[in-house]
Amino acid sequence: MKKGDRVFSIICMGLSLWLILESLKFSYLSKFGPGPGFLPFWLGIILGLIALFAFVNTFSGEKKDKGDEPRLPGWGSLGRVGLIMLIMAGFALFVNSLGFVLTVFFFVTILLFALEGVGFLKSLFYGVMFSACIFLIFLYWMELDLPKGLLGI
């Protein structure tokens, strides 16, 4: 808990500095009231103060039980999380050129096959099922404006 809090408050202090620096680019006041720079400036100050308080606090106070200390999982799990994010990023990258339905097919098949250890044919089957459902519900029936891509679907 302590270490995480410390990192978070340091990140917040960085953010606060950034907010204050950015806010100086804009006028602090308008004709009668606050200008565009007013709120970011004060948010920066407040965030910096709270973060400083939280940072100092991590050094004092009683030791908490080790048990409920949240921490990151092992590298294996982090890798899984990273892979899921990568596959989703791939989705966002390719969806415009491949079209929505085809991308869904690859997305589901790869996710199930590579991450969940589902058999190849079974993954393929679920991929087809998912993309068929997406096609029927969102494109055919609801006529949502989803990317069409290569095949026109």
Binding site: F8, S9, C12, L15, P40, L43, L47, I50
Partner: peptide, 8 residues
């Protein structure tokens, strides 16, 4: 802190 970040 979370709230201030949200406002930012």
């Amino acid at each position: 802190m979370s709230g201030v970040i949200g406002m930012a």
